[in-house]
Write a protein that binds this DNA or RNA. Structure first.
Lengths: 176, 176
DNA sequence: ATGCCATATGCAACTAATTGCATAAGAATA
DNA sequence: TATTCTTATGCAATTAGTTGCATATGGCAT
C-alpha cells in the first residue's frame, strides 16, 4: 500500500485537510497516483486511529469545518521505514488491452473508436504535463534544485503518455 | 472490472481449468494483466454461480481433479456487452514514484539503488517481450493475421517497458 | 533421504478501492 | 431564477485484490 505513504509524504512537507490533500494529489501526484475523495477521507481516519497523524478542527464561516491534519513522529517513522523497504513492481491491469485482445469478436471499428477516445484523454493529459514541465524549466537556481525530484516524477508521466500515444498511432496504422 | 472479461475472452477461444488460465494469463496477457491464482479461482467460482461459465470435472491419476471450464451463452452475451460499453482510462498508482517524490527525506542513493533493481526487472520483462515479438515476426500469412491483435497488445508491453527504461536512464543521469 | 518444483484446487482474513448516497452554503453562470 | 461549481466532510455496501494457509502426489535434483 502506498496511498498511506503518499499522504504521509504530502503531510511531511505541509499540513492540510482532506480536501487540501485531494487537490494536492491532483496537482502534484496526478501523473503517478490517483485517489478519490472517499478513499482519502477513509484513509485519513484510519491513519489517525493508528496514530500516524493528528488534526485540529478549524471552524469556518459559511463553509463546513476543516480538519487540518499533520504528521506525528510515529507517522514520520512509518514513512521512513517504508522508504527503506523494497517496493513491489507496480502491476498493469489495462481493460482497453483486454478489449483489443478480444477484438476479433466484434467489428474492429468498435475498438478503434474507443482507442481514439482514450487517445484524446491521453493527449490532454500529456499537454497538461508539458505545461508543468515548462513551469519547471522556467525556474532558476535553488528553486529548480528544490523541485528536481517532483520534476523527475513528472518526466515519468510525460514519457508514459508519449509511449501510450505512440502505441495508439501504431495500432491505427496497423488496423487501417 | 476486467478480470472477469479477460477470463471470458480466454475461455471464448479455448476451454480450460483454473490452472490452465493461470498459465495463459502469464504467457499471453502478462504484459497488460496480472492475476494471482487465488484471484482466478475465486473469480471462476463467482462466474459459475452467475451462470457465465460451466465446467466438467476430469479425474486424473496421481494429480488432483481438473475442473475444465467453458463459456456459456450467457457468458458470451456478458462479454459482448462489456466490449461495447466504454471502459475507464486505467489508473496508474506507482509506489516507486511516491518514493522518488519523497526522496529528499533520505539519502538519495537509497532510491537510486531501488530504481536500479526495478530496472533489472523491467529489462528482463522487455527481453521476454522482444522474444515474443520475434516469434510473431517469424509467422507468415494466415497465422500472422490471426495473431495481429495479440501482437498489438504485445507492442504496448514493449513500448511501455522501453519508456520506463528510458525514464530510469534519465533519472540516473539527472541524479549523478 | 530431503527438499524443491510442477500440477491442481481452494478457504479465511484482511486490505484496498469503487459506487452511491448524504449534507450544506456561498459564488458564479446561464 | 434555476442550475451548476467549489468548498468540505463522511457513511454504507459492495467489489477487487493480497497474504497466508492447507492439501496431495509424482518427478527431479542435491
Amino acid at each position: 500500500m502506498s496511498l498511506k505513504h503518499a499522504i504521509l509524504t504530502l503531510l511531511e512537507t505541509e499540513q492540510g485537510s482532506g480536501y487540501d490533500l485531494l487537490k494536492r494529489f491532483k496537482e502534484r501526484l496526478g501523473f503517478f497516483w490517483n485517489a478519490s475523495h472517499q478513499q482519502i477521507y477513509l484513509q485519513l481516519k484510519k491513519m489517525h486511529l493508528d496514530g500516524l497523524i493528528e488534526f485540529e478542527t478549524q471552524n469556518q464561516q459559511g463553509k463546513p469545518d476543516r480538519k487540518v491534519y499533520h504528521i506525528t513522529s510515529q507517522g514520520h517513522e512509518a514513512l521512513m521505514q517504508w522508504i527503506e523497504s523494497p517496493i513491489k513492481i507496480s502491476k498493469v491491469n489495462d481493460g482497453l488491452l483486454v478489449k483489443l485482445y478480444a477484438g476479433h469478436l466484434v467489428d474492429i471499428s468498435v475498438i478503434q473508436k474507443e482507442i481514439t477516445e482514450h487517445k484524446d484523454m491521453h493527449t490532454r493529459m500529456l499537454n497538461t504535463f508539458l505545461e508543468f514541465e515548462n513551469d519547471f524549466k522556467a525556474l532558476e537556481g535553488d528553486q529548480k534544485k528544490q523541485y528536481s525530484l517532483p520534476y523527475l516524477t513528472l518526466r515519468r508521466g510525460i514519457l508514459g503518455e508519449q509511449a501510450w500515444l505512440q502505441w495508439a498511432q501504431e495500432v491505427e496504422d496497423y488496423l487501417v
